[in-house]
């Protein structure tokens, strides 16, 4: 107490506190401790999640072994749990989403940074970022009411008519056009991950040094040549990182996908028209229904796989983005 009173007296004129002598103050130590506890609690939380999931998943993982991720049959009635169809569904829909979203995100970012007049930049960015705050269930509902019928009648049916008799490519459109399949789920994912990819892509494109652009233009390049020769190569790493971040979001997305993917069929096929499950939608669908301990454990097992995949994807994305970001700062803008 005595120390604190003494410290309090050290206030300088103008109400400022003399910070120099406070390094070992009791309050400061306490605050450091509290802050550390908060930081540690996050670590503890993550570790606990992993541990609990592993403990719960062990029954199924022990029963199935490696077959849990390579087996193509998921049949709770006979206690066979191979999650490959769900893994395939996750990868297939996420890749469709990524293939659609990345070019759009990069194109829109280029427009905002390189072409758009100043007054238009903020509104466009704002609207795109608005996409990120729309709740997943609303995407799902809109997908059911608007997107799925549209894609079924205007895209899937014509596509099936066009490719149905073409060898090799007809595998892409095998099965009826249902409007509840990998393709529709992929399209809704592409819309949902667009803001994620775009905000990062815009950031890395705008950090391309102005000197690079000016150099190209000084050599007589057109604007497109400048973008192709100076901006894109420079931003490539960051754009890849942005895309992988988007992939991470797509992999874990649950509600909208569950509403649109068809929740069916354990077939693994190249067809865009396959109704299926992603890992997340399988968990959401079967969680309440699991009536044996092994089935429940197997669903937790899917969660473990999902956690690993999203974790790994995010890790890779962050590594790429951070490395790229570091480089630009090093070159100095």
């Amino acid at each position: 107490m005595a120390v604190q009173t003494a410290r309090r007296a050290e206030k300088l004129p103008g109400g400022r506190v003399n910070l120099a002598g406070r390094g070992s103050a009791l309050g400061d130590r306490a605050f450091q401790g509290i802050a550390f506890a908060f930081a540690a609690s996050i670590l503890v939380l993550i570790v606990t999640i992993f541990v609990v999931l592993f403990v719960d998943a062990r029954v199924a993982l022990a029963q199935e072994g490696l077959r849990f991720i390579t087996g193509q049959v998921w049949n709770p009635n006979e206690s066979i749990f191979g999650a490959l169809p769900y893994i395939y569904g996750t990868i297939f829909t996420s890749l469709i989403g990524l293939l659609i979203a990345t070019p759009i995100a990069v194109g829109a970012s280029l427009y905002i940074v390189e072409y758009a007049p100043n007054w238009l930049r903020a509104p466009i960015s704002f609207i795109v970022e608005l996409l990120a705050v729309i709740p997943s269930v609303i995407y799902g509902f809109w997908g059911l009411a608007v997107l799925a019928p549209f894609l079924r009648d205007r895209v899937e049916r014509p596509l099936k008519a066009a490719l149905g008799d073409v060898p090799v490519l007809n595998a892409l459109v095998e099965g009826p056009a249902r409007g509840r399949d990998m393709f529709v789920a992929g399209v809704i994912l592409s819309i949902m991950i667009l803001p994620t990819i775009m905000s990062v892509a815009r950031e890395v494109i705008s950090t391309v040094p102005g000197t690079q652009r000016e150099g190209m233009l000084a050599l007589g390049a057109t604007k497109w040549e400048m973008i192709k020769g100076a901006v894109l190569p420079y931003a490539r790493g960051g754009i890849v990182g942005a895309a992988i971040l988007g992939l991470g979001r797509a992999i874990g997305e649950t509600m909208a996908v569950t509403m649109l993917i068809g929740n069916s069929s354990t077939k693994i096929s190249w067809s865009l028209l396959t109704p299926g499950y992603t890992m997340a939608s399988a968990i959401a669908n079967q969680f309440a229904d699991a009536n044996s301990a092994v089935h429940f454990s197997a669903i937790i097992g899917v969660a473990v796989v999902l956690l690993f995949v999203t974790g790994a994807v995010n890790l890779v994305a962050r590594l790429i983005v951070s490395r790229f970001g570091g480089d630009t700062r090093a070159t100095g803008i």
């Binding site: 049959v73 049949n75 709770p76 009635n77 099965g175 249902r178 509840r180 068809g262 929740n263 069916s264 069929s265 354990t266 077939k267 109704p275 669908n285 229904d289």
Partner: peptide, 14 residues
């Protein structure tokens, strides 16, 4: 037969 079966295809709904 069963409360859940291996459907060969189709849409699943709740």
């Amino acid at each position: 037969s069963g409360s859940t079966v291996q459907w060969p295809g189709g849409i699943g709904a709740s």
